[in-house]
């Protein structure tokens, strides 16, 4: 899935994103989260991603974050959450 309409994954977007994620969880078996258009993330966004990742794993499905931009990855690394998000770094 591509996060089409979003360019950021911050506190302003998390509520919308939660709905998108719940829907994706119902419809898809294996989720590919294309982050190509996301160029801003904060800890609130990271927490939501973490929630999504663990929910997906618990339901025996898979999720992978792809095309993560450097600026976003940097933010993720500050909180050392890249491993929990399954990002190869």
């Amino acid at each position: 899935m591509i996060l089409d309409n979003l360019t950021a994954l911050t506190i302003y977007e998390v509520e919308t994103l939660q709905d998108i994620f719940i829907l994706a969880l119902k419809e898809q078996e294996n989720i590919l989260l294309d982050m190509a258009k996301i160029d801003k993330i904060d800890i609130v966004g990271i927490q939501l991603l973490l929630s999504m990742v663990s929910t997906v794993k618990a339901s025996q499905k898979t999720i992978k974050l792809i095309n993560v931009k450097d600026t976003v990855l940097q933010q993720i690394k500050i909180s050392n959450t890249q491993i929990a998000l399954g990002l190869d770094v």
């Binding site: 506190i11 998390v14 509520e15 994103l17 939660q18 994620f21 719940i22 969880l25 609130v44 927490q47 939501l48 973490l50 929630s51 999504m52 663990s54 929910t55 618990a58």
Partner: peptide, 10 residues
């Protein structure tokens, strides 16, 4: 962190 269904994202 709760599951995506249960989390209050804020």
């Amino acid at each position: 962190i709760p599951s995506i269904e249960d989390i209050n994202p804020l």
